[in-house]
Measured scan of single mutants.
Amino acid sequence: MLDDRARMEAAKKEKVEQILAEFQLQEEDLKKVMRRMQKEMDRGLRLETHEEASVKMLPTYVRSTPEGSEVGDFLSLDLGGTNFRVMLVKVGEGEEGQWSVKTKHQMYSIPEDAMTGTAEMLFDYISECISDFLDKHQMKHKKLPLGFTFSFPVRHEDIDKGILLNWTKGFKASGAEGNNVVGLLRDAIKRRGDFEMDVVAMVNDTVATMISCYYEDHQCEVGMIVGTGCNACYMEEMQNVELVEGDEGRMCVNTEWGAFGDSGELDEFLLEYDRLVDESSANPGQQLYEKLIGGKYMGELVRLVLLRLVDENLLFHGEASEQLRTRGAFETRFVSQVESDTGDRKQIYNILSTLGLRPSTTDCDIVRRACESVSTRAAHMCSAGLAGVINRMRESRSEDVMRITVGVDGSVYKLHPSFKERFHASVRRLTPSCEITFIESEEGSGRGAALVSAVACKKACMLGQ
């Protein structure tokens, strides 16, 4: 009897593995994704193909990295998701002549009506938060230079001027797309009239992360975010950046690689679950690469896999709870928690219980395998993109072996128990001629924006502006 049951459990697990095998990517698959990513990057950089390229390769006008001589107080704003952060950054000489960066910050959550109302409502709310922060720190009387981390696709015309191309991540505030974001912020500050600010720089969160990590390690020339969304930036040779005049030196390019796949480059790798996630998203047909990796989508992918296993009578005796059938019910943090389970399955059992399920031991094991399959594919897909960037940098610099540091931020990278190990191992397999160091950014977005502002202020002083 026991043997029969054991055989049935083994057969069930084997069927589960057959279904989950769809998520496995072979090294040849990853090399294919990497080569296609490089081709799209090239198209994004070139003037004649930029418009139709899915990977936009947006110039950021960040050319210099901090040298350690900029000092002063800077205000930093960070808008990239449902939370908005205001930070005071003091850049100065530390002990023994070292450079020191001290920060104080406060988080504000953005109400739904500000995210989806008008641009005026959104930026009025942001300036209200700045006003509140300055009151708390008794700094209303000071006109501070301000660095703005704005983590949406922007076409820069200068370091302090950028046109919002399109909202992502659930934002829909009308009247912002096609307009200068810094102008919208300046107008809102003017409307309030109770404080003055000098907006000197606007950067993407990947750029802010790279600059913040450069402060720790001067070989950091790539910034990457794996959180709600997924994106990367890197220092490109100016001669390859056709959208900006000049051939000397390097400029940081914001790849906006989340949109890779929007022209069909990933079609052969998309599964039924991916198509369902895409169809029910706020932007169907867009940001397809990001939807395979980002935390906004990972939990939902797992939920759809679990429903398939229920329908195949391989999980929960073929019956799903009402909660499990509800879109968004299986949160991405559950994926991390399930994979963090120590082996007694308590954590998995508790999560499934909150979803109205009474799982068996085998159910718990199957749910864990589903989570591992989805998150491992995410790590491997992400590795193909980064390997594409790094191999490109090595080739354009004609280096036999390139040493490089990548600064990384984002909740999936930082909080998932195995993502970074799987990701690092896969990147290294795909970049055999590179020695890569990964560092995690601390308060990256805010500190990085302030350091970019410090560079901009120093330049302005040198130019006598």
Results as ranks from 00 to 15, higher is better:
315 L>T: 09
56 K>P: 09
12 K>N: 08
164 L>C: 01
403 R>T: 12
79 L>I: 08
85 R>D: 02
432 P>D: 15
440 E>G: 07
364 C>F: 07
184 L>E: 01
107 M>L: 06
80 G>C: 07
231 N>K: 00
130 I>H: 00
32 K>I: 03
460 A>C: 15
39 K>V: 12
42 D>N: 13
360 S>G: 11
450 A>Y: 00
217 D>K: 15
80 G>L: 05
285 G>H: 10
411 S>V: 00
102 K>P: 04
198 D>L: 07
38 Q>G: 08
238 M>C: 15
49 T>R: 12
288 L>P: 13
229 G>Q: 01
218 H>D: 15
267 D>A: 15
279 E>M: 15
145 P>L: 12
115 M>Q: 08
289 Y>G: 04
9 E>F: 14
22 E>R: 06
184 L>K: 02
89 V>C: 15
263 S>E: 10
372 E>F: 12
312 E>D: 14
347 Q>V: 13
46 R>L: 07
216 E>S: 15
388 G>N: 05
385 G>R: 02
245 E>W: 12
342 T>E: 09
153 P>M: 01
246 G>C: 06
14 E>M: 15
400 D>V: 12
37 M>F: 05
432 P>W: 07
157 E>M: 09
218 H>S: 14
179 N>C: 09
287 Q>E: 04
60 T>R: 03
450 A>D: 00
149 T>G: 09
272 E>V: 05
37 M>H: 02
249 G>F: 06
452 V>E: 09
42 D>P: 05
431 T>M: 15
307 L>C: 08
170 G>H: 03
237 E>K: 14
94 G>S: 08
192 R>A: 07
109 S>H: 09
21 A>L: 10
430 L>W: 08
352 L>I: 08
165 L>H: 00
40 E>G: 15
353 S>A: 10
130 I>A: 04
62 V>F: 06
430 L>I: 10
308 R>G: 10
132 D>P: 01
396 S>L: 10
402 M>S: 12
269 F>R: 07
156 H>P: 04
198 D>A: 11
98 Q>L: 08
387 A>I: 07
395 E>V: 12
203 V>M: 00
401 V>P: 12
202 M>C: 07
291 K>Q: 02
110 I>V: 05
376 T>F: 11
424 H>V: 14
460 A>P: 15
414 K>D: 08
242 E>F: 06
302 V>T: 15
343 G>W: 07
112 E>V: 14
243 L>E: 13
216 E>D: 14
140 K>W: 04
76 S>K: 03
77 L>H: 01
106 Q>C: 08
439 I>L: 13
291 K>A: 07
49 T>C: 06
133 F>W: 02
389 V>K: 01
399 E>K: 12
397 R>D: 05
390 I>T: 07
164 L>P: 01
114 A>R: 14
234 Y>L: 01
215 Y>R: 15
94 G>I: 13
343 G>L: 12
279 E>R: 15
106 Q>D: 09
301 L>R: 10
327 R>H: 15
441 S>W: 08
136 K>H: 12
235 M>F: 15
442 E>R: 14
234 Y>A: 00
